[in-house]
Design a protein around this nucleic acid. Structure first.
Length: 632
RNA sequence: GCCGGUGUAGCUCAGUUGGCAGAGCAGCGCACUCGUAAUGCGCAGGUCUCCAGUUCAAGUCUGGACACCGGCUCCA
């Protein structure tokens, strides 16, 4: 006899039952995909063996969605297995927003085949084929998949530690899987196949490339449609599209990965830099600029030759080998070394908006998000060991200000530790890692650990921004570096009159100005905040008779440093408003007979609409009231 | 770099089985002198990404290069 308690206090005593039967008795079966029994997700068909808690898992929970999507992946695999005999299967997990399955399909498929596969999936789903779990020994499972000529499954099984594995059967199809799954295929109803892509077996580029089909599934049609709308929304915000439409930047065939910034884009880039400089000056930073091209010996000394050569560009000057800088630090080292430093000089906070070039593989380039030439908002902080923690906390505070206060992003932090291809002793790494950890913990902020993902010269804290439609982007980073000061023999004279080794921090906040610009475009959907908008006010004369008055008004606004333009075209007002609106200009100022006579203007804000006529002075006050971190 | 897809006017895209290269928007001109999200008419605009090949004939078929798009790997 076992006793099961539901979350709503109800309980049942049963002689023997499956999870599904128990839920049924408790009146909780409706809509459940699986059950949570004593904190473990199990199939509804699973016989219960011990007393404890039980609750249903529905498609509205995260676990339920995962189960549903995983089952959708199996359903797709079953369809493909039937339609393309000889297909071998890799892995097919649920992921954020959907699922995928990696397969080796004879003859391959393209996106045009997806509707056919979807159709077959719906056919199978309708038949409500039971999904059954069977446990077996590894040997049995191996024999099963070997017989089916499924070497990828066999490979996974042979590497599993457990003695027993579980397989899920639905009709002729079976898959190695921990489960749980939906009771039968009819539970998977609201799904869509999205795209076809290549993916290396086990994510290793030395392995064969399998065909990956992405799809998604939801508990109801509305959620599926909402997801599709969200994807369309993301597409309409694509910075490459908006960059073209708003004439911000372009990328030309002559410079793959090397963006061209147009006048309007430059306003934003310059705005970012002005704001950034102002904030850094406030916080005790100085600024330097180091050369783009430096002698190869410098890069050998810094370790980049050994660790980063693949990503570097090289050139020659007077038959001497030089390299284009992929990072700013070695140049910065030379500035530090240009004179003797005292402990009184520390901490030194040396910023550099440094342009770096990195050879990125052709397939990874992506608008402004992934380029071959970009501007890092870099800084190197040199300090005494006891200053490290406070400096890190200071950087974290600057990040908070810029990310949250100025741009309104949510963000998370991540601590990355020693990677495989690293320089330096274990002891140094331990000290560096614990320094970062300590600063994080003292700040009280939450963070994630990402083992083995540090830079080759030191551990790091990364900052991930979340944009307004939930995507995340890595921007800022703080990296502790004990290597560079050693390699370049950096010193300062201590109070004791002896030479000491400074600790060095690398850090960026925006990361790459280019990428950050791209993120801003997508986050704001091109409707930039007033302070950084390329054009802040567009004056719209009602007809040609008012162009002179428009010009006068524009002059007055420009004198106040406001970026203004006039729409002088021989078009109707409605057309001019429409065009200014699609250009996402924050303010329009309509001028016609009435305004000219009374010396006023009629402003219109892009999201609030007509603000009514007002004297220019009043409009200037409205503008002065806009958020502007350049002025504070 | 790898897998798959795409490349036609400034932009977005049509273009039948190989047979004279099209539309909308943008641009320019003319008319209208206009009041809060598209006034009308007209004109101009193309080495159909590039290089080879097949063919009487290639935007269309074949091969290669380049670029872009979706992913993988990598990454700010």
């Amino acid at each position: 006899m076992i006793e099961l308690n539901a979350p709503d206090q109800k309980s049942v005593r049963l002689e023997s039952a499956t999870a599904g039967e128990a839920l049924e008795k408790l009146g909780l079966r409706g809509g459940a995909l699986a059950a949570m029994v004593n904190g473990k997700a199990v199939d509804l068909y699973r016989p219960l063996t011990e007393s404890g808690s039980i609750e249903p898992i529905g498609p509205d929970s995260e676990e339920g969605l995962d189960i549903l999507r995983h089952s959708a992946a199996h359903l797709m695999a079953q369809a493909v297995a039937e339609m393309y005999p000889g297909t071998r299967f890799g892995v097919g997990p649920a992921i954020r927003d959907g699922f995928y399955y990696d397969m080796e399909i004879p003859g391959g498929i393209t996106e045009e085949d997806l509707p056919k596969i979807e159709k077959e999936m719906r056919r199978i789903a309708k038949r409500a084929i039971p999904v059954e779990r069977r446990e077996m020994s590894k040997e049995e499972a191996l024999a099963y998949f070997r017989e089916k000529d499924d070497p990828y499954k066999a490979e996974i099984i042979s590497e599993l530690e457990e003695e027993k594995v579980s397989l899920y059967f639905q009709g002729n199809y079976a898959d190695l899987c921990r489960g749980p799954h939906v009771p039968n295929t009819s539970y998977v109803r609201h799904f869509k196949l999205l795209s076809v892509a290549g993916a290396y077996w086990r994510g290793d580029e030395k392995n064969i490339m399998l065909t990956r089909v992405y799809g998604t599934a939801f508990g109801n049609e509305e959620a599926l449609e909402a997801y599709i709308r969200r994807m369309e929304e993301a597409k309409s915000r694509d910075h490459r599209r908006l960059g073209k439409e708003l004439d911000l930047f372009s990328i030309q065939a002559e410079g793959p990965g090397f963006p061209f910034f147009h006048p309007r884009g430059m306003v934003i880039l310059n705005g970012l830099m002005d704001f950034w400089r102002k904030e850094h000056t406030k916080r005790g930073y100085c600024e330097i600029r180091t050369p783009l091209i430096l002698d190869r010996s410098l890069w050998i000394r810094s370790g980049h030759w050994d660790h980063y050569r693949e990503n570097m560009y090289f050139t020659e000057i007077d038959e001497q080998p030089f390299a284009i800088k992929p990072m700013n630090c070695p140049g910065g080292m030379l500035v530090y070394k240009s004179q003797i430093r005292s402990y009184r000089d520390l901490p030194m906070r040396v910023a550099e908006l440094g342009i770096v070039h990195r050879h990125e593989r052709s397939g990874v380039l992506h608008g402004l998000m992934r380029v071959r030439c970009f501007t890092q908002d870099d800084a190197h902080l040199y300090c005494r060991p006891e200053q490290v923690k406070d400096e890190i906390i200071g950087i974290m505070d600057l990040c908070r200000y810029i990310y949250s206060d100025v741009f309104g992003f949510k963000y998370t932090m991540e601590l990355s530790t020693r990677p495989e291809n690293s320089m330096g002793s274990e002891e140094q790494w331990d000290i560096a890692e614990s320094a970062l950890k300590q600063a994080l913990e003292e700040s009280g902020a939450e963070y994630r650990l990402n083992p083995g993902d540090g830079a080759f010269y030191g551990p790091k804290i990364d900052f991930h921004l979340e944009d307004c439609i939930g995507r995340t982007w890595q921007c800022g980073t703080i990296q502790l570096d004990f290597q560079m000061p050693e390699k370049f023999d950096l010193t300062y004279i201590g109070a004791d009159g002896k030479e000491h080794r400074p600790v060095m921090l690398h850090r960026t906040i925006l990361g790459s100005l280019e990428r950050f610009f791209g993120i801003l475009i997508e986050n704001f959907a091109g409707a930039f905040p007033y302070w950084i908008a390329p054009v802040q006010v567009r004056i719209l004369p009602v007809s040609g008779d008012f162009v002179d008055y428009a010009k006068e008004t524009a002059q007055k606004l420009r004198a106040k440093g406001i970026r203004v333009e006039i729409d002088e075209r021989d078009e109707k007002l409605g057309k001019k408003i429409r065009d200014a609106q699609t250009q996402k200009i924050p303010y329009m100022a309509v001028v016609g007979e009435k305004e000219m006579q009374s010396g006023t203007i009629a402003p219109r804000e892009r999201s609030r609409g007509d603000l009514g006529s007002m004297p220019l002075e009043e409009f200037l006050e409205v503008l002065a009231g806009e958020f502007n971190p350049l002025k504070s």
